[in-house]
């Protein structure tokens, strides 16, 4: 029973990482139908930015300073990628996959040249040591913090999309790009803002990964493939769908690990997604539309 509860908690903890990694992907995919294969490297950049911030800023609350640095740094990087690469390829989704994968190779090697292949350590601050004991299981504070950040990001994003003018424009372009453009909305700029926002969130995810283990040039890779599966399962760019898919996959992965080892659990996650497609090919949250190619 305790094992089960522990794995459920682990599932939510992993799910919050999947969610932070997948939100940006889902946002841009819903809007532009492109997947940025270098998204994992945005996590990596966030991790290294956290490391650098902790080198410079003193005091016990310096982790709090690392969060905005990683967000803004990764967002700026994302904006650059969008302007230089994504925008030029917007009509060719599959080619975007390949080009951004090339970028991911370059970024990984760049990190290897700058910081070394072994990776750098980010020590979690003292206030994240220890944990809370609930129902006989020990919940590590770091994991709780990560879940908290994921919920905060989600709430912020929901507010942004539903309450602000930017959110209104994003929803307009999301629903009907041509119509939105016809009413005078600069769809290209909306794309840019959403893409940068998404990579910024990935930067935050990178800080979370840095709390759990060393930041290496390939740190993003271990979470990015599950994040891709979350996007596949979530339904076209739907935030609610992405959250549901992240939680489901997180739970599937960690509950499977009760009886099988981690690598088989990974296979089971993939099998689960393929089976899920058989029942709901349009994803957890379906986009209600009569258009043929939504």
């Amino acid at each position: 029973m305790e094992l089960l509860l522990g794995q459920v908690f682990n599932g939510f903890s992993v799910a919050s990482l999947y969610l932070l990694a997948a939100l940006g992907l889902a946002l841009s995919f819903g809007l532009m139908r492109v997947i940025n294969m270098a998204h994992g490297e945005m996590l990596m950049i966030g991790g290294y930015l956290a490391y650098l911030t902790l080198q410079v800023v003193p005091g016990p609350w310096r982790l709090v300073a690392a969060l905005p640095v990683a967000f803004v740094g990764a967002a700026l990087f994302g904006a650059l990628i969008h302007v230089v690469l994504i925008r030029r390829l917007s009509a060719r989704p599959l080619d975007t996959l390949l080009a951004t994968w090339g970028l991911s190779l370059i970024l990984q090697q760049g990190a290897r040249s700058l910081f070394g292949a072994i990776g750098v350590e980010v020590t979690a601050p003292a206030w994240l040591d220890g944990g809370i004991s609930v129902l006989g299981i020990e919940l590590p504070a770091v994991r709780l913090f990560i879940i908290g950040v994921a919920i905060a990001v989600l709430a912020g994003l929901a507010l942004l999309l539903s309450r602000t003018r930017i959110g209104l424009l994003v929803r307009a372009v999301n629903q009907d790009r041509m119509m939105a453009a016809a009413t005078g909305i600069d769809a290209g700029r909306v794309d840019l803002v959403v893409f940068a926002l998404g990579t910024g969130i990935a930067g935050l995810a990178g800080v979370m990964l840095a709390l759990l283990g060393p930041v290496t040039p390939t740190v993003g890779q271990s979470y990015i493939v599950p994040a891709f599966l979350v996007v596949v399962m979530g339904g076209l760019g739907s935030i609610r769908g992405t959250v549901a898919a992240a939680v489901i996959l997180g739970l599937v992965g960690s509950l499977a690990q009760i009886s099988v080892d981690a690598s088989v659990a990974q296979v089971l996650m993939l099998v689960f997604v393929i089976l899920f497609i058989q029942i709901r090919p349009e994803g957890v949250v379906a986009n209600k539309s009569r258009a043929l190619d939504v």
Binding site: I35, P93, L94, L97, V225, F228, V232
Partner: peptide, 11 residues
């Protein structure tokens, strides 16, 4: 399309 590419990568 893109979904297939991502699933094959997971494979």
């Amino acid at each position: 399309g893109t979904y297939f590419a991502l699933i094959t990568q997971a494979l």
